[in-house]
Design a protein around this nucleic acid. Sequence first.
DNA 1: CGGCTTTGACCAGCGC
DNA 2: GCGCTGGTCAAAGCCG
Length: 400
Amino acid sequence: MGNSSTLTDDEIQKKQNKGNCIINFPFSPALPSCSIFDIIPPQSDDHQKSSSSSFAGYIDLLSTNDFTVTSSSTLLDWFPNTVFDADDTSPPPAQINQLPLPSPAVSDVFNTNPATPISVSSSISSSSNEVCVANKPIVPVAGNEHELELLEEEAKDKDEDRAITHVENQNQDRTIQTKKLVKGRKKKKKSRKERATRVSFKTKSDVDHLDDGYRWRKYGQKPVKNSPYPRSYYRCTTAGCGVKKRLERSAMEPSFVLTSYEGQHTHFSPILTRAAELGFVTNASSFHDKNYQHRNTLATQSQPQHFQHFHHQPDSSSSLFNNSYNIAPPFNVVNSAHNFINQENCAGSSSHSSCLRINLRDLVSDDGLLQDMIAPKEIAGAGAADGEGRIDGDVTFMLG
DNA sequence: CGGCTTTGACCAGCGC
DNA sequence: GCGCTGGTCAAAGCCG
């Protein structure tokens, strides 16, 4: 084999061995291109406007500006309430809805199907040349107001700018013209408030550029005030895809990297494509369709019956792409959750209205990520975090 | 040679 | 109005 469209075993092995550059994101052990975002149902106009969306809590979380680990942020906050609400039919935990929110557009992040998955598996994409070590994506950090219209506008602006550049390039000496272009650049920038439409993740990683399955080109780097670490700007290299990514290492906690995504990919992750080609998925397009079908299902169905969907299944591979709705999950994230989330054994959930136990051993393969996972403060039960915030064993995430 | 990173310069929003 | 800052551009250089 070895053609450009197929990964041979050797290639896979080679990539995996490359500096151990594997990011084992807990929710997507099977398909690296899967994203936590993929469990997010797209919001139709109706849902978008509906404050009763069962995903409101999660939406709220993602809409939180630069949300770092707070007592309100559990890993579960990442999942739609519809899906994870164990056995109760109560409304979404108030706690989630009470997260400090930037005023607007709670649903926007959903709307745009946030750009990029949390780092999932690294090796295939990323233009980073840095030595890879196990990365530890975990902590949801932010989501700001997000307007699809704004993104579209921004794309238009970008096109206009490029058009201007092109015309000018045709008419002038290149060198002179370049300066002119720069000086006369009619860049209609969005206000910071407008452009602050990011979803951010705080991850514990030795590597600055976490590989998330997409290909990125670095287009800028700026020193960060009060930080010895610069901020890097990346753009998705896929033509027509305007997703941007911003990376910076925390000055306060140098072991943490803050990754922000802005925009919406207009394409599949190269890894997913490859997975499809390898037969993990029938084909990308049908997968895509089913993905959206599933999202819509999640978005429209009522809550209670969903949880059965996530009963623990030891054999994750056999259950891949098979769920109680007989439709393909959004990438494999739901499947992943499906495989490792165990509704039972919620003893010790104290007064919380519901809880989920996640058997880490079921979702972490060999040298997985979870041992390095940053423990949300709420984590309770058997799987306590160690002194460095890492988790081992079973962890119960509390809801509500 | 193409793709990517580096880096200095520039633009525009924001706060004072 | 001015300075600061975040974000972007694009030439130059690097690398496989």
